[in-house]
């Protein structure tokens, strides 16, 4: 692969540079794990305190949209992993289209999430803005929806950042990609897969509980 410039002086080789970048993105992912980990801990604590409320809250979420979004995100991750795998100057065009496809799937996810949010608003399930649920489980359901909106909104923000990254890389990789671009794409891909992993757990915690009971 052609080189646009030599590696920076702190590195012994291109391999050393790429290895450092990979370790660096894993450190960043560790901080992100703890960000979402704190939210998931809060979720477990309140689910432990209000089990029926959380089951009822979960039943109010749109499982069809949630499942479709999970499939969309898994497919998007697959496209990015594919792009990383075949990356070379000869495949620049295909890599570009794979990244655009992955970013478009990311946008589909955001749009479906928006539709879901508007449905929940119509059903008066947005704590702090319009929450009108009565009954013995109302407090638990409200706590569930507080955590639901905070975690999914922070996740959606990560998605938007990821979509911008993928589109930027698609534009850059279009012509004469170098090993530096491959390293950048590899780092962005690790981030994108991590956002996918977060969603896998959010899906299991938000959409699946309480489905077998009524």
């Amino acid at each position: 692969m052609p080189e646009s410039s030599a590696f920076a002086p702190q590195y012994a080789s291109i391999r050393h540079r790429d290895y450092t970048a990979e370790l660096g993105i894993w450190v960043f992912i560790a901080t992100e794990v703890l960000l979402f980990g704190g939210l998931i801990l809060a979720y477990f604590v309140y689910r432990h305190a209000f089990p029926p409320g959380f089951a009822a809250g979960s039943r109010h979420t749109e499982i069809v949209i949630g499942t479709a979004n999970t499939a969309v995100l898994l497919t998007s991750s697959f496209l990015v992993a594919w792009a990383v795998e075949i990356f070379s100057p000869a495949t620049a065009k295909i890599v570009t289209w794979l990244l655009i496809g992955a970013a478009c799937l990311g946008l589909v996810f955001i749009v479906l999430k928006g539709i879901e949010y508007s449905k929940e608003y119509d059903e008066h399930l947005v704590p702090g803005i319009d929450f009108q649920l009565a009954g013995p489980k109302a407090n638990g359901v409200q706590l569930f929806f507080v955590l639901y909106f905070v975690t999914t909104a922070i996740h959606a923000l990560h998605m938007l950042i990821g979509i911008c990254l993928l589109l930027t890389l698609a534009a850059i990789c279009r012509k004469a990609p170098t090993t530096r671009h491959h390293t950048a794409l590899h780092s962005a891909a690790l981030y994108w897969h991590f956002v996918d992993v977060v969603w896998i757990f959010l899906f299991a915690l938000i959409y699946l509980p309480g489905r077998s009971t009524s």
Binding site: L23, W26, V27, I29, A30, T31, E32, V33, L34, G37, G38, I40, L41, F44
Partner: peptide, 13 residues
Amino acid sequence: FAGAGLFWLGILL
């Protein structure tokens, strides 16, 4: 490095 995040997550939870 990849396991470090999980390790600290384990302690947190």
